[in-house]
Simulated scan of single mutants.
Amino acid sequence: MSTEQKSGVLYIVATPIGNLEDISRRAVRILSEVDLVAAEDTRHTGQLLSALGIRAELLSVHEHNEEKRSGQLIDKLSSGLSVALVSDAGTPLISDPGFVVVRACREAGARVVPVPGPSAVITALSVSGLPSDRFQFEGFLPRNSSKRRSRLEELMNLPHTLIFYESSHRLRESLEDFRTVFEASRQVVIARELTKQYETLLSGTSGELLEMLTDDANQTRGEMVVLVEPAPEGGGEELVIGVDKLLKAALDELPPSQAAAMVARLTDLRKKELYQRAMEMKEP
């Protein structure tokens, strides 16, 4: 029998990222015992609770109303009620709403208790075959290609595995930017639809993965976690030189077409793509 305090507690409850069987017995118990479930999408969570045979009062808490809801939840906790915070899938706050609520509740002196469980980040890392002793989770990269490349350049020399979330309609663009910024041999893993019917793991260089996606467009569908292997050991500036840096240096001496041709020979990247990037750099 559990001895957990139940009144005035905010529980942060992880829920399945796909397979319903992944929910823990403790999570089911907490969800069935709390006075209120604060959910990112009440319709989605309502379906989950229904599948678990749980009836609960639901309150929407999403990125657009967290500030407002924080005060309401603090009032409920102060009155002795217990609340479970859930996101649509996985562990709340990880690229999902909840941070504002948790911070406000802790500052107000409320007890916040984790109920751990599924996380797409850790699930993908555990099966990727990439080093797992050190990693950096970046969430979603910028939507704008120029900003995305700039961020990748900041990360390119890190000696640990990089993990990103990516939307299906930007997957190709991000892989193109990986190919431009990272060295050609750098291994990338796409973990798609984890724990679901069409779960797939694709591994290869950015160029190889782009070819795979061209051959099978279905691999661009669903929810994605993308992982990139660490920079080579001792991978300082002298060993890992970004393609953009090569282009910039070449453009100091050559016109865009010749600069693109030279960098293409050095990196095995496509001259056309390098030329387009060179022209972007030349723009005032």
Rank of each mutant, 00 (worst) to 15 (best):
Q187E: 14
R148Q: 03
L171V: 01
A259L: 05
S146V: 13
H64D: 04
V28Q: 13
R170C: 00
E280R: 11
K282Y: 07
S87F: 08
P230D: 11
P114D: 08
I94Y: 05
I12R: 02
E183M: 05
T161W: 07
G242T: 03
C105S: 12
S128T: 13
E237S: 07
Q5R: 11
P230H: 13
K245M: 12
I163L: 12
D88H: 03
V28M: 14
I163A: 04
P159E: 09
H62I: 06
A278D: 12
V9D: 11
A249R: 13
L52R: 09
R149D: 05
M279E: 14
R43I: 05
L239W: 01
R29A: 15
T3C: 01
A110G: 04
Q5V: 10
V113Q: 11
R25S: 02
S70N: 05
A217V: 13
E208W: 10
S126P: 14
P255H: 00
N144P: 01
E40Q: 02
V102Q: 09
Q72Y: 09
V188K: 00
D35L: 05
L152A: 00
R143E: 10
S126H: 09
T214A: 10
R111Q: 13
S95P: 02
I163W: 01
L213R: 02
V263R: 04
V13S: 00
P230C: 10
R277F: 01
N19H: 06
L247E: 08
K196A: 10
G109N: 10
V115T: 04
S167E: 09
T205V: 08
S168I: 06
L81Y: 08
E229A: 14
R69H: 07
P114A: 10
A260V: 07
G90P: 00
G204T: 03
S32L: 08
D216C: 10
L141Q: 03
P284R: 06
A56R: 05
L31G: 00
S146R: 10
R43K: 12
S145C: 02
P232Y: 09
T3I: 06
L31D: 00
T220G: 09
E280I: 08
A249E: 15
Q5K: 11
L210V: 04
A259R: 04
L175I: 07
S128W: 13
E183W: 02
L254E: 13
D22N: 05
H160P: 03
P142A: 01
D88V: 02
A278N: 12
I122A: 14
F178N: 05
D75N: 07
F137M: 06
G234S: 11
V127K: 06
V28H: 04
S79L: 14
S206T: 08
S7Q: 15
R179Q: 15
S257E: 13
I54P: 14
M281A: 12
S203W: 04
R25D: 07
V28D: 04
S60E: 13
Q219T: 12
P118A: 10
G80P: 11
P116F: 00
L73A: 09
G129W: 04
L194K: 04
Q47T: 15
V100F: 08
L269K: 15
G109M: 11
